[in-house]
Amino acid sequence: MSANWINDLIHNRRSVFSKQFAIDDPVDDVIVQQLLENANWAPTHKLTEPWRFKVYSGDGLKEFTNTHVKAYETLAGERFSEAKLEKIKQPLTCSHMIVVAMKRHESVPFIEEVAAVACAVQNMHLTAQAYGIGAYWSTGGVCLWEGAAQKFGFEADHQLLGFFYVGNVAVPSPKGKRGAIEEKVLWIK
C-alpha cells in the first residue's frame, strides 16, 4: 500500500446513483460482504461498534420496497405525498440495498455514535471504489423519522441512518470537485 494509492482512492470516490447502475448485473455477495467487513473496522468511541446493517438482494429487494412503502404510509403523517409514495413503490435498480442503522449506547454521546456509523459507511464507500463498483448513501425521507428503524426490523434502541445502494457501474460519475482546502483551514503555529 502506498500513500499515493490511498490518496487516489479517496480523491476518486464518487457517489454512483441507481440510474447509473448496470441492470441485471448483480455485484457478487463476496464483495458486499467485504464492504461490511471493512465497515466493521471504523473508529468507534468506547468500542461500542454502533453500526447495524440489513442487506437486501435478489428477490429481497421487493421485500425492502414493501417495507419502505409501509414505513412511509404509517410514518409520513402530514408529510405524506402521493408522488413520493409512487416513487418509493418503483422497483429498485440496484444490486444490493444495505439498510444502515445505529444501535444507541447511552454511555457515549449521540453525535459520537452517528460519527462512528458515518465512518463505517465511508469505509464501505472506499471499498466499493477499490472494487470498481458503484454505491451511494441516501439519508433523507423516512430515514429521519422516529420509529423508522423498527419498521425495518431493528430494535427500539436503534435509529435508522440511511440506505446504502450498491450496483455495478454502467455510467461513471463525473470527476469530483472540491474547493481549495486553504479556504477551510487555519494553521496556528
Rank of each mutant, 00 (worst) to 15 (best):
S107N: 12
P109S: 11
P109M: 13
F110C: 08
F110M: 15
F110P: 04
F110Q: 14
F110D: 15
E112N: 09
E112F: 03
E113L: 15
A116K: 08
A116T: 04
V117R: 00
A118K: 00
A120R: 02
A120H: 01
V121A: 03
N123S: 10
H125D: 07
L126E: 00
T127V: 02
T127L: 02
T127C: 07
T127M: 07
A128G: 05
Q129Y: 02
Q129V: 05
Q129N: 13
A130D: 14
Y131K: 09
Y131N: 11
Y131V: 03
G132D: 10
G132Q: 09
I133C: 05
I133D: 04
I133H: 06
G134L: 07
G134S: 06
A135C: 15
Y136F: 15
Y136I: 01
Y136Q: 07
W137M: 03
W137G: 01
T139Y: 00
G140Q: 05
G141S: 10
V142P: 11
V142T: 15
C143D: 09
L144G: 12
W145C: 03
G147F: 13
A148K: 12
A148C: 13
A148D: 09
Q150R: 12
Q150G: 05
F154E: 05
F154L: 10
A156W: 01
A156I: 07
D157T: 08
D157R: 06
D157M: 04
D157I: 03
H158C: 15
L160I: 09
L161P: 00
L161Y: 00
G162I: 06
F163R: 01
F163Q: 11
F164M: 10
Y165E: 06
V166M: 09
G167Y: 04
V169Y: 02
V169M: 05
V171E: 09
V171M: 06
P172V: 02
P172D: 02
S173P: 05
S173K: 03
P174L: 05
P174K: 06
P174H: 07
P174C: 03
K175H: 10
G176Y: 05
K177H: 14
G179F: 09
A180Q: 12
A180Y: 02
I181S: 10
I181G: 02
I181P: 01
I181R: 09
E183S: 12
E183W: 02
E183L: 11
K184R: 13
V185L: 13
L186C: 08
